[in-house]
Amino acid sequence: KELVLVLYDYQEKSPREVTVKKGDILTLLNSTNKDWWKVEVDDSQGFIPAAYLKKL
């Protein structure tokens, strides 16, 4: 599985998104959309702007 590093805090703005903190390491589930990547946070899944993430 691929991991990503969160570069900036992000507060979810819709139920399909997730809240993350700078420095979090998350599992990347889908990066086919260049603007929004799907990640797994704890036991939930959701989208975060790709610009907030860096592949490890």
Results as ranks from 00 to 15, higher is better:
K34H: 10
V41I: 13
D35T: 13
E40W: 08
K21V: 07
Y8Q: 14
Y52Q: 05
K22P: 03
L29C: 06
E2W: 11
Q11A: 13
R16H: 12
I48W: 02
V20P: 00
K13H: 09
T32G: 08
E12A: 15
V6M: 02
V4Y: 05
L29K: 04
Y8W: 12
K38P: 01
Q11C: 12
N33I: 05
T32M: 10
D9F: 04
E17D: 05
A50W: 02
K38Q: 14
L3C: 13
A51S: 14
G23W: 05
A50S: 13
L29I: 14
W37S: 01
P15M: 08
K38Y: 15
K13Y: 07
I25W: 03
P49H: 04
V39T: 01
E17L: 08
D35M: 13
T32Q: 11
L29R: 03
Y10H: 03
D35S: 10
V4H: 01
K22A: 13
G23M: 03
W36F: 08
N33T: 05
Y10M: 01
K21G: 04
Y10V: 01
S14F: 09
K22D: 02
E2Q: 14
T27V: 15
E12K: 15
L56I: 14
A51V: 12
Y8I: 08
P49W: 05
K54E: 14
D43G: 15
L5D: 01
W37E: 00
K21Q: 08
V18F: 14
S44R: 15
E2G: 11
I25F: 04
L26P: 00
V41H: 09
E2F: 10
A50F: 02
V20F: 05
D42P: 07
L56M: 09
V20G: 03
P15I: 08
L29Q: 03
E2N: 11
K34W: 06
W37T: 00
N30I: 07
D35K: 13
W36R: 03
L7H: 01
K34A: 12
S14G: 13
T27M: 09
L53P: 02
D24H: 06
L3V: 07
L5S: 03
D43H: 12
G46L: 15
Q11R: 09
V6E: 00
D24E: 10
K34R: 11
F47D: 04
Q45H: 11
V41K: 15
A51I: 13
P49T: 03
K34E: 11
N33R: 08
L56P: 00
V4E: 00
N30E: 15
D9S: 08
P49C: 07
K1E: 08
E17F: 08
E17V: 07
T27R: 13
K1H: 12
A51K: 15
T27L: 13
L28H: 01
S31E: 12
V20Q: 02
K21E: 04
F47Y: 14
S14T: 12
W37G: 00
V4C: 10
Y8F: 13
E2M: 12
K1F: 12
G46A: 14
E12L: 15
V18G: 03
D35I: 14
W36G: 02
R16Y: 12
L26E: 01
Y52A: 12
Y10F: 06
D35P: 02
L29A: 03
L7Y: 02
K1I: 11
N33D: 14
N33H: 11
Q11D: 12
L5V: 11
L53H: 00
E40C: 14
I25Q: 03
L7E: 02
S31P: 05
L28I: 04
K54Q: 14
Y52N: 12
K55I: 13
K55A: 07
I25V: 11
L53A: 09
L3P: 03
Q11K: 12
V39E: 00
V41G: 08
K13I: 08
K13Q: 13
V41T: 15
V4F: 03
D43V: 07
V6C: 06
D24I: 05
P15F: 07
E2D: 12
D42L: 12
G46V: 15
N30G: 06
Y8T: 07
G23A: 02
T19G: 05
S31H: 09
K34L: 09
K38T: 09
T32R: 10
V6T: 02
Q45F: 13
I25P: 00
Y10W: 08
Y52M: 10
I25D: 00
V20T: 04
G46Y: 15
P49D: 05
N33Y: 07
E12F: 15
I25N: 01
G23E: 02
V6Y: 01
S31Q: 09
W37I: 02
T19W: 05
Q45G: 06
D42V: 10
P49M: 04
L26C: 12
E17H: 09
E40V: 10
S14V: 06
R16F: 14
I25R: 04
L26S: 01
